[in-house]
Amino acid sequence: MFAGYSELLNELNSWLWLATIILPFLVLLTRSGNRSYFVVAAVWCSVQLLNLKIEGFLWETSKNNLIYWFGTWATIDALSIILVLASHKTLKIKLGFEAFSISICIAILALLQIGTYIDGAVLKTYLMKEAYTIGVNTGNLANALILSVPLLSVCLNTFKQRRRAM
């Protein structure tokens, strides 16, 4: 049903981790991000790098029992939200738009992992097979897009200012 979209997401996903790392640096250069943004960007980048590091190993380990695969991703997601919240509380700052959106997105991804495991391994209905692939890739793409919001707003403001000057 979503074959074209899924394929596009798969292609994008292989480059997404690079965008995730580059975007915060670009935001830092343009000085458009706040502390909340950089906290969540650091957490999300770490999660992405960890994903790249353990994905192969985890796939080999979880061939016999899928709980290792889905459970680990859900746990990593939960830990990253804890990290975001704890950092904000330590720094005494409130969650910005990016931190809030990415945290909610990560939480949805974690719930998707749990739901897919229950659907595939417990109920064996396999209803969420396609939803899982598309959902995870869309979540990653959404998080990368949210990280680019400060840059987009800078571009929009510059465009508006130039238009006014003309």
Binding site: I67, A74, S103, L111, I114, I118
Partner: peptide
């Protein structure tokens, strides 16, 4: 299997708790 489901149930409740905390942290005192 029971242990796995128990772990996932705890994780599920914990994630819901985290979502509530995220909403709470959005607005400071």
């Amino acid at each position: 299997m029971i242990l796995e489901l128990l772990y996932l149930a705890v994780l599920f409740i914990f994630i819901l708790y985290l979502i509530i905390q995220v909403f709470k942290c959005k607005v400071t005192t």
